[in-house]
Amino acid sequence: MKLGLRLPQRLGVDLQNDLVEAARTAEAAGYASLWTYERLLFPEAPADPYAGVPGVPWPESQRQAADPLAVLTAAAVATERVRLGTSVLIAALHAPVQLAKTLATIDQISGGRMVAGLGAGWSTDEFRATGATGADRGRYLDETLNVFDAVWGSDPVTVRGPRAAIDSASVLPKPVSKIPVLLGGGGSKIGRNTKSKAVERIARRADGWLPFLSTPGPAGAAELRASWDRIREMAAGYGRDTSRMQMVVVGNVTFTDRPAGPGRSPFVGTLDQIMDDVRTAAEAGADELIVDLNLQEWFTGTRQMLETAVEIRERAVAS
């Protein structure tokens, strides 16, 4: 299993210097990829709890979340080998044609290293800020995928959707090759009888899945593996080559001073417990794990974050 690292975008990051240092340090340490997340704004009185989970406040560290595509552009220039991904961009917050063009441009700048991770989103405040609505978020995501297919294909481009209309036009640059599109959502417990538009969309259209691990240990590994098997079974039913699909697990790390007790969430606990969760993701069949240290409140700076990231990578290799 490969490891990826989310780049620092949070409050307190020195964007002029920290991004380049983080990108170069991660590549030198052997990380296979660098990732960014999207947080458009930080409402003082949110319409929704964080990630839509009742009672969960928005993390203060996300009062700033630097633009994910600008951050990846800086990383593209500062690195040579690592892939560059978004986990995730909220499709409804972007004009589809402009987003397709920006992703293709970063792919060209990086020499073909772009990975586009997308999601439907959950924040009413962010939808309102861009003139979107939560009710239409799935429709906007489908339109964005349609526009990607058209714009990244051959010219002239013709495509029509709720927000995009192109009639026989050239749209350049094109990606170096097809940019893999991964989708989040769908939950982590996908059974044979699960009926979900999000799961259907992943199976029909995505090059991969961006899930979270919901339970630590063997039970969590078995649960996630079963869900991934179900998605690939559905994809095969649509005539797709499932050997080319990837599962990239997202690990949002929160360290604790003492070992977290029974009932802990994955990637919450001591470093030893975090490493157990890394192994659980591998046992679940993950092709890659994104290590996200952006939510960690006690990091005093990017240097401390990177020292921890390097240690995680070294311990993963040694295990």
Rank of each mutant, 00 (worst) to 15 (best):
G52L: 01
G52R: 00
P54V: 08
P54N: 11
G55Y: 06
P57M: 03
P57R: 07
P57I: 07
W58S: 13
W58T: 12
P59L: 05
P59G: 08
E60Q: 14
E60T: 13
S61E: 13
Q62M: 15
R63N: 11
R63T: 12
R63V: 10
R63W: 08
R63F: 06
Q64V: 12
Q64R: 14
A65P: 04
A65T: 01
A66V: 02
A66E: 01
A66G: 02
D67A: 06
D67N: 09
D67Y: 00
P68N: 10
P68L: 13
L69R: 02
L69M: 10
L69T: 04
L69I: 05
L69E: 04
L69V: 01
A70L: 15
V71G: 03
L72W: 05
L72G: 03
T73M: 03
T73K: 01
A74H: 09
A74I: 08
A76F: 03
V77E: 12
V77I: 15
V77C: 10
A78F: 09
A78M: 09
T79K: 08
T79F: 02
E80N: 11
E80C: 06
R81V: 05
R81I: 08
R81L: 05
V82R: 10
R83E: 12
L84K: 04
L84P: 02
L84F: 07
L84R: 02
G85E: 15
G85M: 15
G85L: 15
T86F: 00
S87M: 15
S87R: 13
L89G: 02
I90F: 02
A91M: 10
A91I: 10
A92E: 08
A92S: 10
A92V: 08
A92I: 07
L93S: 04
L93M: 12
L93H: 10
H94K: 03
A95S: 15
